[in-house]
Design a protein around this nucleic acid. Structure first.
Lengths: 229, 229
DNA sequence: TAGATTGTTAATCGATTAACAATC
DNA sequence: TAGATTGTTAATCGATTAACAATC
């Protein structure tokens, strides 16, 4: 670009999936650095902290635009802002949790969620013994109210902390109500229409993959297999 | 290879990472199918259930060996066995949970873990008010006992459900005690020696990636971006 | 200027998938 | 045999990374 074009709406480049998945990790590290009053960081340093290749860091950051200074590095605060902008974290995304069991409560209360721009605005359950109970600042609502709530409050993200048997049906209701993204903790593959983003977090799957690596460790006792998965 | 070699110890092929990550998903689906008394399945059916390409399913399964029947498909029970064998799930892997907060308790009690071959044999905390309390079948132990426990009981996997500030130090202790794999819920990148497998499950990261997709939905309102992340 | 570090190119590597011969 | 489906090849696509000119 030779002349500084006026972009009323900033150009939206599509960033490779693999890079998008790493941006939150950089963001986390940069936020830590900022807490420690570090103001500048090089791709080498960032790479060491994130356990990746420095070239990868530079390439990932280059998708955000050209925000480093040759010979110097990157300004931490500015990079944090740019990553947030790119990931859409300058806005808050209203989130609801479905399922007020152990996991649902842990998520709602532990609340790394709110502090990262994802306020949990409601929690739902079907169990009459749970409806009305307090979970953190919230009162557990009846699942019957969920569809209306999503519509009336412009909820963006639904977190499924329900048994596998209920997950698909709850997901269908959420999607019908207009929700755009699902974070699913139930160990099933959800069927969803295109345009709805789903991320599955199956703790059993995570463990099984670790099981594989444990087995590999045991097998080739002479040859230890370095794995950072 | 022209002559059929006698392999006393079965040859250990290295399976591509991407395939290893999908095997637990197939296993889950196959287990469901078995519950529904389905005995045969084709790569097309399995692909539809797993939301992936049928060629990918066949290629993934081919790493296990040649266990399908042309014109027919795969036998569910046999495939389950082969995936379990490959992932090292014919053995149980002793697991401990560190951190008896909401999340630690949810993991220990909800216990999809035990039923999938990862018995949680102990849970630890530093908080004197938690030590001695019951979590499911277990009594919360003092973190001081952790190193000894790991050594004496041959624990394989450690699950970190502690605050970020404590995570690295607990991880160091676990590794020193001889543990081989870590499942980390704290939002930091752990530093570990080669040979130790780490899987990070950062719920904040998951949400932020969903945030990105929500933003993309909003931006190009004409062009809906299909995402199954 | 000398030293450091970015941004980008291009080579390489690994993963995906269409296509089809093999074969039940 | 006819129909179906696997197992594998090879083309394609996307991700990684070494290397280095640009430049602070």
């Amino acid at each position: 670009m030779t002349s500084p074009e006026k972009n009323a709406s900033p150009r939206r480049r599509r960033i490779p999936t693999a890079a998008v998945n790493r941006l939150p990790v950089y963001l986390q590290i940069l936020t830590d650095l900022q807490l420690q009053e570090t103001t500048q960081v090089s791709s080498d340093q960032l790479a060491a902290l994130a356990n990746v290749n420095a070239a990868k860091v530079r390439k990932d950051l280059s998708y955000l635009g050209t925000y480093g200074t040759r010979g110097v590095g990157y300004e931490v605060a500015f990079l944090i802002y740019q990553i947030k902008r790119e990931l859409g974290l300058l806005t808050e995304w209203k989130t609801i949790v479905i399922g007020a069991g152990n996991l649902g409560a842990a998520i709602t209360v532990n609340g790394g969620f709110a502090s990262r721009g994802f306020p949990v605005v409601a929690i739902f359950d079907v169990d009459p013994r749970k409806i009305g109970a307090r979970v953190g600042d919230l009162t557990v609502r009846n699942l019957d109210e969920m569809t209306d709530f999503v519509g009336n409050n412009g909820v963006h993200i639904g977190v499924l902390a329900v048994p596998s048997t209920a997950a698909q049906s709850v997901a269908d209701d959420l999607i019908a109500a207009g929700i755009g993204s699902l974070l699913n903790f139930a160990p099933i593959v959800l069927t969803t229409p295109k345009g709805v983003a789903v991320r599955n977090v199956d703790l059993g799957v995570e463990l099984q993959i670790l099981g594989y690596h444990e087995q590999m460790r045991g097998q080739s006792s002479s040859q230890h297999n370095p794995v950072s998965v």
